[in-house]
């Protein structure tokens, strides 16, 4: 393995955070529901995407798998009340992930 390969860990790793979140949401709730929507930072998981709570759990698990220990989702969610989790927008998650990646 060359230094160049080490620096570039593949297209998925270089994906912008919003694109990763959008891709994983689509995997979970199915393309037919997402296609009609353009997922942006202002998209609400609950009101716009109608993500079920159990699907949000699955999304967080996929994100944890993707980002590893660099992003502490337990801390993110432990600090939120139920109504705040339900009211989350894509942008809230993207901002937290970007912040964590910068700090990691």
């Amino acid at each position: 393995m060359t230094t160049g390969q080490l620096a570039t860990t593949g297209p998925v790793q270089d994906e912008p955070v919003l694109a990763t979140v959008s891709r994983l949401v689509t995997e979970i709730i199915g393309e037919e529901y997402v296609l009609a929507l353009d997922i942006t930072l202002d998209t609400s998981f609950n009101a716009d995407l109608e993500v079920e709570s159990i699907e949000f759990v699955a999304l967080a698990a996929k994100l944890r798998e993707h980002y590893g220990e660099r992003v502490d989702f337990v801390a993110f969610l432990a600090g939120k009340e139920v109504h705040e989790i339900i009211a989350l927008h894509v942008g809230d998650l993207v901002t937290y992930i970007e912040q964590s990646l910068r700090d990691a």
């Binding site: 079920e52 709570s53 159990i54 949000f56 759990v57 989702f73 337990v74 801390a75 969610l77 432990a78 139920v82 989790i85 339900i86």
Partner: peptide
Amino acid sequence: NLSSFYYTLANPVAA
């Protein structure tokens, strides 16, 4: 399902 605990107590207990 498990989300009722995930949204309420599980993450704080893990934290």
